[in-house]
């Protein structure tokens, strides 16, 4: 079977700092990595192919920094990697991303299943998967915590606020997966070495007949500021710490 696993190359927010004074976002120390949610999407595709045969094409869109992601994604089990080169990843919103991915998917040819993460670690808008499915006119099964294939029928357990919904649809289809669907493998030296020999391909926006106008975001960013946590930040140490805390909480009327 032919699977396309989409991923995003995102900054690791653990290393993004906020300037205390100006609340500016300092990204200079943060490194890019495959968005953690998308590692489960790639793993999901790879496991299906390991069980059924076929190939997983990893697909991404983004600026020049994305080049470094190709070997990474291939070491995680993808058969080949396709990157749609874009001037600047940050300039794309979910609508633009989905439009670009849809065009790339059409160029990739026939497929059975597209796998996306439930959201990205940076924006977490959770739009790209369902948008992509609509643009391609295929059924979408979101928030999957379990996936099964029976012939041409994809059966998925969706984890929703109200409970588990079991749904099915005929392939080709798109599924967005939750992190608990699997445990993404950590590539070893062998996989990393092999990744260097796997095929990669780059599409330009012009190859997909997309213009800058097509993917221009609809919302204009007015401000981007570090979130303020206005907390007391009192440290209580030593023998009397517990006593102190309980009396403070009682005085504040919360216990």
């Amino acid at each position: 079977m032919k699977i396309i696993a989409c991923y995003k190359w995102t900054l690791d927010e653990a290393d993004i700092r906020v300037d205390e004074g100006t609340r500016a976002i300092l990204k200079n120390r943060a490194q890019y990595r495959i968005s953690p949610y998308d590692r489960n999407a790639i793993e999901c595709g790879v496991q299906l192919v390991e069980a059924q045969g076929g190939e997983v094409a990893a697909l991404t869109v983004g600026g020049p920094e994305v080049a470094a992601s190709l070997k990474d994604v291939l070491s995680r089990g993808a058969t080949r990697a396709v990157w749609v080169g874009q001037a600047e990843t940050a300039a794309l919103d979910a609508a633009g991303t989905a439009l670009t991915l849809a065009a790339a998917v059409k160029r990739l040819g026939e497929y059975d299943l597209i796998v996306c993460g439930e959201g990205s670690s940076d924006n977490y808008a959770q739009q790209t998967g369902p948008r992509l499915a609509e643009l391609l006119g295929i059924p979408v099964l979101t928030y999957a915590s379990k996936i099964e294939l029976e012939g041409n029928i994809l059966r998925v357990e969706r984890k929703l606020e109200e409970g588990i919904e079991v749904v099915e649809a005929a392939l080709p289809a798109l599924v967005t997966v939750l992190p608990d669907i699997n445990e993404a493998r950590i590539p070893g030296l062998k996989q990393i070495m092999a990744a260097g020999k796997k095929p990669t391909e780059q599409y330009a926006m012009a190859d997909l007949t997309l213009t800058a106008e097509d993917i221009r975001p609809t919302a204009q960013q007015e401000s981007l500021l570090g979130a303020v946590t206005d907390r007391k930040r009192v440290l209580l140490k030593g023998e009397n710490a517990v006593k102190e805390l309980v009396s403070i909480l009682k005085a504040e009327g919360i216990c």
Partner: peptide, 9 residues
């Protein structure tokens, strides 16, 4: 954005 690290207007 970024897991709650910053607020975008």
């Amino acid at each position: 954005l970024f897991g709650g690290l910053c607020l975008a207007g």
